[in-house]
Design a protein around this nucleic acid. Sequence first.
RNA 1: GCUGCCGUAGCUCAGUCGGUAGAGCAUCUCCAUGGUAAGGAGAAGGUCGCCGGUUCGAUUCCGGCCGGCAGCUCCA
Length: 644
Amino acid sequence: MRLPFGERRVPRGTRPAELLREAPADLARRALVAVVDGEVVDLARPLERDAEVRFLTFDDEAGRAVFRHSTTHLLAQAVKRLYPEARLATGPALADRFYYDIQFPEPIGEADLARIEAEMAKVAAEDLPIVREEWSREAARAFFAERGEPFKVEIVDEIPEGQPISVYRQGEFVDLCRGPHVPSTGRLRHFKLLNVAGAYWRGVEGNPVLQRVYGTSFERREDLDRYLWVREEARRRDHRRLGPELDLFSFHDEAPGFAFWRPKGWVLFRELERLSREVQERHGYEEVRTPYIYRAELWKVSGHWEHYRDNMFLSEREGEVFGFKPMNCPGHCLLFAEKVRSYRDLPLRIAEYGPLARCERSGTLHGLLRVRGFHQDDAHLFLREDQIADEIADVVAIVDEIYGVFAMPYRIVLSTRPEDFMGEPELWERAEAQLAEALDRIGRPYRLNPGDGAFYGPKLDFYVTDALGREWQTATVQLDFQMPIQFGLRYVASDGRERTPVMIHRAILGSIERFTGILVEHFAGDFPLWLAPVQARVLTISDEVAAYAREAAAALRAAGLRVEVDDRGEKIGLKIRDAETAKVPYMLVVGRREAEAGELAVRARKGENLGAMTVAAFAERALDEVRSRRLPGALAGREAGEAG
RNA sequence: GCUGCCGUAGCUCAGUCGGUAGAGCAUCUCCAUGGUAAGGAGAAGGUCGCCGGUUCGAUUCCGGCCGGCAGCUCCA
């Protein structure tokens, strides 16, 4: 046997667990499962031949999956003890959690989770060995039928001929399962049941509705605590709570899926647009504004009619159907086609920030993160095929610039041809290869996500990581050979012949609505100064300095800062508290002393006292912070750019 | 869209076993002019999501619809 800690000769039938006796203590203690010639198996699975044997711990993604999958069995066993009538369906591990779909005799609520959890703790304390057995189909069928587990019987029936049917036994509990599993229930100490939701058996509408019990588990207590803290913190930062609280935006029943931007939120929105314009102008983009509503004819040409109609807002007028645009590309194609284009004009980069509308299914709407009306920092690039790699490199450079500003690392995913696609498969393959090649050329790693491309082309999706370590899909770059053909777009090549340009659809922030929602949660409302809707608030100590306060505020506004005055007849403590709650970065306290000296007593957020300074000195300091788009303390040192 | 849950004042929530509702915060008025996270007093504020049914009477029970939440599915 070849082991990470050397080679060993052992008799046939030796178990990986036995090999661990000679392993370093840390590995021996932490190993969860073995990998024998690439196959993940139980530590108790006898070795039949010479092989390379490795061990997985909780540090390995696959190890964590096994660990959490084993926790689902712990959950199932506890449930069967408490509710013998419960019928088990399936219980897989997710990226950071697990769930088990269960049909309870009576629906349970989240209040019941603590009881189940307590029972799980008992099973874990019993430290029951988890043992694999292989059964005949008949035996498995009979067993689960007799135990009143119709879902398990159904699964048994669907296991292909020739594939072994394995069950795992821990104490009195036996579950149908492919495995592998950790060696005993005692390994699973740090777990937490999170929530209950409904789910159809096999995820098919019309099937019986089961209750999906979510939970998570970790090897170490502190990692579980950290996970739960992040969850709780995410709840506190929820943009749906903070947004209205900070006076940024709101929603009304009258327009489901469409945000109302209040003045303060709109400041944020415009600052993001400003950042985008600033960067893109430097990269040779030209901004346009095209119509919102087009005849159905256009959507038939672009392919949206066939592939995207269900998501479009359509209406009929004078016997004709019109559609509100869900994307800008067809409009930009019309613009491109207006003139005879030379190869010298390419790449032509057309940007637009106008409104888009997509009729998302009602159940998918979610605050600003998923809306029906939104704006993108959208652009369409028309180029020659030989310009693809350079142009993609340039787009990635823009991504770096923009996400660097927010200290958000990202990773890239390449999505390929979906089932519902347009055009010739060969063109798709060419486009997919070109995207991969462009990334290779600038040395950017990426992952593959087959079948997830847009209907007109493969794409690169950028997943950014926020301050809580959560990932969000934001930027997207889509390579499209189809639409230029559909629209009959041409340019005159250097040899005088007409050729079809290639198109790149790209957005960096993505939906600005969505991105604002992400930022609210990323910063927990504590925006960097350049984004803060109110950058400073002048607070008066008594009525007699109100005039001076207004004067100082006017001077700061004239300098280009967003400033409010709080001259209410309240105590300074209350005004500080209110400004702190509103997350105003600078509080400028003004009393008789400051009024006489022409100064401001500057208090930064979180109570830091910066002392008294003149109005001009504060303006200079603040403007410098705005211009540099500096980040607030906690994020300032964070690694930006690529996450690999 | 589907399943489950929810919808009472601007916000957070209590309450009515069927007899048209209450607290805190916010708002307004008055007193207090107070130096770094809540000064005091008073007032005003609700077609109890919408429509229908049952009932002498519905915010409460029933049904439908709308919206929200957790998921499923889908995705910027």
